[in-house]
């Protein structure tokens, strides 16, 4: 029996600017089940981080949720007021950000930041909270915890700091973790450790994870399902094996083709010609159509949508012709 932890319906995020309203996230629908890891992949500016921030209620003004609903285990959270949302963040949704070097406040001991978060979300007393902080640090693999708990962030390496960030995200045993590019700023050798750690911790606890990244390799290793985003829209959503092996959307196909492989020697990597449009100049119809080899007249006219599994492409949408 599966339990839907996160249910995003027709989410639309807009940025009013002097030159008109930009749509950073356009009609996105996705769900994450308990214990499931959903990878969200796309180029910079595809709207994947923006989706995460919208779920956390941390969009930078003037950015705002213009339409759609966000439900967390059945509770609608996009309409909550700031004080209520404060009790959701950290407690029911944990967050991991890209750069562990800047995620921690440099002037506070890591132990104090952990204890602060634990105090905010649990009833634990002073010594119990400290004990829990140490347990969490041990769990994320930090050695000599008794000593390290009173260290400042700058005394840890990048990988260690990201472990502490993960511990911070787990303080209140949240239902959902939004990990926004958690390994991008780390050494390649450390990336694998961190993703493995994240995966293990969430599997053990049944935590749902939204893993935002532009690294298809991380997705392939970690995620159960993957959502491919392009220019603020969902291009394709499906189980990782399907999307990786049998991509349906021409963009996903191009994305897969541009990943170097150790096992084949295809010579040159294939590239997708052109680049993703800027938010202000998304073409009519399918956002990908100017770069798509298969684009037909309908692709230039109407926006293909997918809600649920499948590709947002007129070529594959049932019974349609491009």
């Amino acid at each position: 029996m599966t339990q839907t932890v996160l249910d995003v319906r027709n989410l639309r995020v807009e940025f009013p600017t002097r030159h008109g309203t930009l749509t950073a996230v356009d009609d996105i629908s996705l769900t994450i089940e308990r214990g499931e890891i959903l990878g969200v992949v796309g180029e910079s500016g595809a709207g994947k981080s923006m989706t995460g921030m919208a779920i956390l209620g941390l969009l930078e003004p003037p950015g705002r949720i213009a339409a759609g609903e966000i439900h967390l285990s059945g509770d609608r959270i996009d309409t909550l007021t700031e004080p209520h949302m404060q009790r959701v963040r950290g407690r029911r949704i944990g967050a991991i950000f890209q750069d562990p070097l800047t995620s921690l406040n440099p002037l506070f001991r890591v132990g104090d930041q952990l204890v602060e978060t634990i105090h905010l979300h649990t009833e634990l007393g002073k010594s119990a909270a400290r004990q829990r902080a140490m347990d969490l640090m041990r769990e994320v693999g930090i050695p000599a915890v008794e000593e390290r708990i009173d260290n400042y962030p700058h005394q840890f390496s990048g990988g260690m700091r990201q472990r502490i960030v993960i511990a911070l995200a787990l303080c209140a045993e949240p239902e959902l973790i939004i990990a926004d590019e958690p390994t991008t700023a780390l050494d390649v050798s450390i990336q694998a450790q961190i993703t493995a750690l994240l995966k293990r911790l969430c599997r053990d606890r049944g935590t749902a994870v939204m893993l935002v990244t532009h690294d298809m390799g991380v997705i392939a290793e970690t995620a159960d399902r993957v959502a491919v985003m392009y220019a603020g829209r969902l291009a394709e959503l499906g189980a990782v094996e399907d999307v990786v092996r049998r991509p349906q959307h021409p963009y996903t196909e191009g994305l897969m083709g541009s990943i170097p492989s150790l096992h084949s020697d295809e010579g040159e990597l294939r590239m997708i010609p052109g680049s993703m449009p800027r938010l202000g100049s998304i073409p009519a119809g399918c956002a990908f159509n100017p770069r798509c080899a298969h684009a037909g007249p309908r692709c230039r006219r109407e926006i293909p949508r997918t809600h649920g599994t499948g590709a947002a492409c007129w070529l594959t949408l049932e019974g349609e012709t491009a």
Binding site: L56, V88, R89, R91, T102, N105
Partner: peptide, 15 residues
């Protein structure tokens, strides 16, 4: 505007 301020908000620290 610093990241740790945003991260503190994500941890649920009150404004």
């Amino acid at each position: 505007r610093a990241d740790y301020v945003k991260f503190a908000r994500a941890r649920g620290v009150p404004r």
